[in-house]
């Protein structure tokens, strides 16, 4: 994916179809996104990483991870459904993602591949998965 393909419509007219506005953010409509490609593309256009919001999917299990970047006041959203509990880390590409990846790991027991963890919000004896609706099994 090239960086120009995911620049929001507001900035490049020819890419107007690539995003839809929903609930206060511009959501990328394309499918088959790879999070590390998105992070590289966002770096290339100078977007500021904001956060990752995790949703636990009740029906079939798994999670939905929403990644947000800010580009000149536009809030960009990228949706990543995952069946299991692993996801590629973007920490090496995006320094600002460090704490939020650690937090998602502690709250939802999601493993971000390619990085190590140090405790963030949990203290000694704290069990990862504190935000899970399902009972935490160690």
């Amino acid at each position: 994916m090239s960086s120009t393909e995911i620049i929001p419509d507001a900035l490049i007219d020819s890419e107007r179809a690539a995003y839809t506005e929903r609930g206060g953010a511009l959501w990328y409509c394309g499918s088959g996104l790879i999070v590390r490609d998105v992070a590289r593309a966002m770096n290339a256009v100078g977007a500021r990483f904001i956060t990752i919001t995790t949703y636990e999917l009740a029906a079939n299990g798994g999670f939905r991870l929403e990644y947000h970047w800010d580009l000149m006041g536009n809030l960009l959203g990228f949706d990543f459904p995952i069946a299991g509990n692993t996801m590629e880390s973007i920490y090496d590409l995006c320094e600002a993602a460090d704490w939020i990846e650690r937090e998602v790991h502690e709250e939802y027991r999601i493993d971000f591949r390619g990085r190590g963890y140090e405790p963030l919000l949990l203290r000694e004896g704290g069990v990862c998965g504190v935000n899970l609706q399902k009972e935490v099994v160690q």
Binding site: R22, G23, I50, E66, H68
Partner: peptide, 21 residues
């Protein structure tokens, strides 16, 4: 009208963002 929404505000210390589903 939408299942999920996001809002951002400039707090004294900087941007606050809420995502509500």
């Amino acid at each position: 009208t939408a299942p999920t929404a996001t809002a951002r505000v400039e707090a004294p210390r900087g941007e606050v963002m809420y995502s509500v589903s």
